[in-house]
Amino acid sequence: MPETALPKSWNKESKPHKFCPGCGQALALKILGQAIDELDIQKKMIYATDIGCSLLSWSMFNVDTIQTHHGRTLPLSVGFKKAKPEAIVVSFTGDGGGYAIGAQHLLNTAMRNDPITVILINNANYAMTGGQLAPTTLLNQKTTTAPKGRELAQGKPFKGPEMLAQITSEDAHIARGISTNYQQLLEMYKKAISNQIEGRGFSFVEVIAMCPVNWHTDAQQSLDFAEIEMAKIYPIGELKCPQK
């Protein structure tokens, strides 16, 4: 049996995982697995997932995992952290859970500067339910519930990290990465998790991810849409980094 290319923290029994071919979320999770390996926190970590495509990752890692109702992952993670401060809590949620149904929790967690790490996947639609309009859908992007493309009347694309950068304290780590840039995203994850380990406070990484199935794109078109179209609206980089 040859040695695999999977991160060591991935649960090998649940592989191949349940994400669609070409999914950017799976890529983001592969890089998270690499970050867990490099920081060597597999035994100290608690992984919290939300409902949505993110739930498919419940058996992704060989780490202790918790899960709750749609959008309520953050309060659950904060509760866990309060009860067991030495645990490293990483919450994983989608744009539906974080920016729509659970937006109030994200806001309040950030305002209180609770010391947890939040990773939020931005794929510009509600992927698990078939590609409906999400807060992060781009203007003019067609979805199943916006067949003519998103109009301004339906709101502007939601910029989470920018909003959180306004309301969080200086100790918070806020960044936006893209799942196709391995090294950059790995660094962002490591900084975000270290921010929690060093006890500074809230850390947040939004990850732009491809969704070829709901975007109806092939490999090249998915990469172009994520790296060019989406990155234009959602600039990639660190908005707040206390570790400089």
Binding site: P2, K15, G22, P212, L223
Partner: peptide, 24 residues
């Protein structure tokens, strides 16, 4: 398994879903 001096390239059919990102 494919290899030449210094480089070894491996693929795993039990994991590959054929998305084509690597080709691009």
């Amino acid at each position: 398994n494919f290899s030449k001096e210094k480089i070894s390239w491996q693929r795993f059919p039990e994991y590959c879903k054929g998305c084509g990102l690597c080709i691009v």
